[in-house]
Amino acid sequence: MHITIDIDDPNPLFSQLVEQIKKAVDKDMIKPGAPLPSIRQLANDLEINNKTVAKAYKLLERDNIIQTRGYRGTFIHPDAKLNCTVDMSEWVMTKLTETISTLRQAGVTDSEIRIAFGNVMSNRQI
C-alpha cells in the first residue's frame, strides 16, 4: 500500500500524510491492527523531516486512528475506520462558533473576544 505526498501542494505535508492514512483506512486499503512504518522509515522514504511524520502520527494517535504500542511499533487502531469519520477541525469550528455566538449574545464585543482568545491561547498551561 503506497501513499503519495506532493511537496508543492499548499496543504502542509503533515496534513497530507494524515489525510492519506485516513483515506487508506476508510477505503479498507489498510486494516485495523496492521503495522505502520516507523517515523524514521516513512520520513526517509518520503524524504521529509522526521518531525513532520511525528506530527502526523501524533494527530492520528489523538484521533484514535493509530496507536503506539511501545517498542513494538505503531499500528492501526481497532476502531480506526469509525474514528475516521470524526473531523476534529470541523468539531473545533462548531465549538468555537457556538462559544462566540454565546459571548456575542451576552454583549461581549468582537475585539474583547479576540483579546481574550489571544490571552487564553498564549497561556499554555490551560
Binding site: 503519495t4 506532493d6 505502520l36 522514504d45 511499533g73
Partner: peptide
C-alpha cells in the same frame, strides 16, 4: 517530480 511516494509496510 514534486510527488514523493512511500510504502506503508514497515520494514
Amino acid at each position: 517530480s514534486s510527488n514523493r511516494e512511500a510504502n506503508l509496510q514497515p520494514r
